[in-house]
Amino acid sequence: MNFLAWNMTHLAAILIVFVATIADAQVVDRSTEEFDQDQVAIWINQLGADEFAQREYAAGQLIELGVSVLPPLQDAAERTTDPEVRLRSRQLILQLTSGDLQQRTDSFLAGDEVPFEGWGVMQSVMGDSYGVRKLFVELLMSHADVVKSLDGSARDRAIAMQSAVGRIRVRKYEKMQMPTRSDILAMLLPGQDSNVPISEADESLMLSMLRQATGNELHRDLQLGGPVDALVGNWINRSSLANRDETIFFALSWDLESVVPLAIRTLDEATTADQISMAMQAIAQHGTRQDGKHVAKFLDDTRIVAARRSATGEKLETQLGDVAMATIAMANGMKLSEVGFAKAEQHPLQAFILEEIGFPSDDPSKRQATRKRIDAILEGNANSLPIFP
């Protein structure tokens, strides 16, 4: 060790002891003691052990050695391929270099102004409440790199998010653990930056987490529901075409009005009838009269999206053009029965059920009558036509 490195190491040790004494921290500094480097390497490796007790024991032993283990911990945080070892190494580094962290987080949760990297960004997009602060602390403890990246560049955020994705995948698929609230935020927050790339696989991972209990609890939380819905709304509008129908269906299940721009874009981008009909359902549910005009180009589309038989055995088919007619009617504030969909009821989340807006395959007259009504709506002459009983 050269003279400068020796001085820096011992200066860090003196500062840590001083801070720990003031904050009444429980970190014991044994940095002046010799330690077995091989044993330290074993303990660092055990930070990623499957057993909780083994991970905690290894962390405790490393904490007892104090700042002297900072170099091997920093090396592990930078070089290991194990996301758990990387995460816990960074957490130990933070603990060893911030002896007053617990005191700071306690003050922060009490509503005090405590400077934390990343808090300003999270506060600007989610507001300031006890629930948001508690979620920020959870994120700080489990995805500290994501928190730090919020004040950095798009590249910093992209790297941090991918590190978080690695940790989440290990826990979800290898250890079969449920995602946490902080796991969801670790992807949502960096993903608000349009310069941070999101792969189709990342989209699928996020959708799966949001559909699970943890995501639904965030959605229903009185303090967090609104801010989280806003983050999710921004995120879903970056959806790839490959995941588009699944994304729109999810947005409808959460009743997110922010899905409308994505739905309108889908009308231009998608080629499959299923994706287009799903987009039109979103517009019917949340769109305005102006939004409804975007679907008019599909009024003559005869692709079949659903079929069933009536109670009398009559074959009913729902064409893409029928979906467009139902969408225009609902976007103009009309009941489906008013334009000729006699058996259709408005669905509380999906606007309508495709099978319920079909017409007899061997009798075009009913479809033609509804089309006449829809054309009048688009021309602004709806009042000149009688309303269907």
Rank of each mutant, 00 (worst) to 15 (best):
123 Q>S: 14
264 I>S: 02
344 A>N: 04
213 A>R: 15
63 I>V: 14
226 G>W: 11
157 R>K: 15
227 P>E: 07
283 I>P: 02
112 D>M: 11
226 G>T: 12
228 V>A: 02
337 S>L: 06
14 I>C: 01
376 A>G: 10
20 A>S: 14
202 D>K: 00
265 R>Y: 09
125 V>L: 08
334 M>A: 07
146 V>E: 03
170 V>I: 11
60 G>W: 10
25 A>E: 10
266 T>Y: 01
22 I>V: 15
267 L>T: 09
350 Q>L: 13
345 E>A: 13
116 F>H: 05
143 H>W: 05
134 K>T: 10
54 Q>E: 14
368 Q>P: 00
170 V>C: 08
368 Q>N: 13
329 A>D: 02
356 E>D: 15
128 D>M: 00
76 A>L: 03
89 S>G: 10
135 L>S: 13
5 A>M: 10
220 R>H: 11
273 A>L: 06
95 Q>G: 13
98 S>K: 08
215 G>L: 07
149 S>K: 02
286 H>D: 03
147 V>G: 02
27 V>F: 09
103 Q>W: 11
128 D>Q: 11
371 R>M: 13
35 F>A: 08
204 S>I: 13
272 T>W: 05
77 A>S: 13
113 E>R: 08
384 S>P: 00
31 S>D: 08
362 D>N: 14
276 I>V: 15
74 Q>F: 05
242 A>C: 00
64 E>T: 11
352 F>H: 03
146 V>R: 04
30 R>F: 10
26 Q>V: 00
94 L>V: 06
182 S>L: 00
229 D>T: 11
194 S>H: 10
265 R>M: 09
152 G>C: 08
210 L>S: 02
14 I>V: 13
315 K>R: 14
301 D>C: 02
235 W>S: 01
301 D>S: 06
325 M>V: 08
354 L>N: 04
176 M>T: 09
93 I>A: 06
26 Q>D: 15
37 Q>A: 14
225 G>F: 05
155 R>K: 12
110 A>Q: 13
296 A>L: 04
192 Q>N: 07
25 A>D: 15
177 Q>D: 09
43 W>G: 00
315 K>L: 13
153 S>Q: 03
223 Q>F: 09
324 A>M: 05
221 D>P: 04
380 G>H: 02
46 Q>Y: 06
244 R>M: 15
36 D>G: 02
91 Q>N: 12
121 V>A: 11
379 E>I: 00
233 G>Q: 05
358 G>I: 09
255 D>E: 14
370 T>S: 14
62 L>V: 07
217 E>Q: 14
14 I>P: 00
330 M>W: 03
239 S>T: 14
218 L>H: 05
144 A>W: 01
77 A>Q: 10
23 A>T: 11
389 P>C: 01
259 V>W: 02
266 T>V: 05
6 W>P: 00
296 A>T: 14
319 Q>M: 15
2 N>W: 01
290 Q>Y: 05
22 I>R: 10
332 N>R: 01
160 A>C: 08
279 A>L: 05
352 F>D: 01
117 E>Q: 13
84 E>D: 11
145 D>H: 12
345 E>Y: 13
299 L>I: 04
118 G>L: 07
46 Q>M: 00
266 T>K: 03
105 T>I: 12
243 N>H: 12
206 M>Y: 03
175 K>N: 08
144 A>S: 14
304 I>V: 15
52 F>C: 00
303 R>L: 01
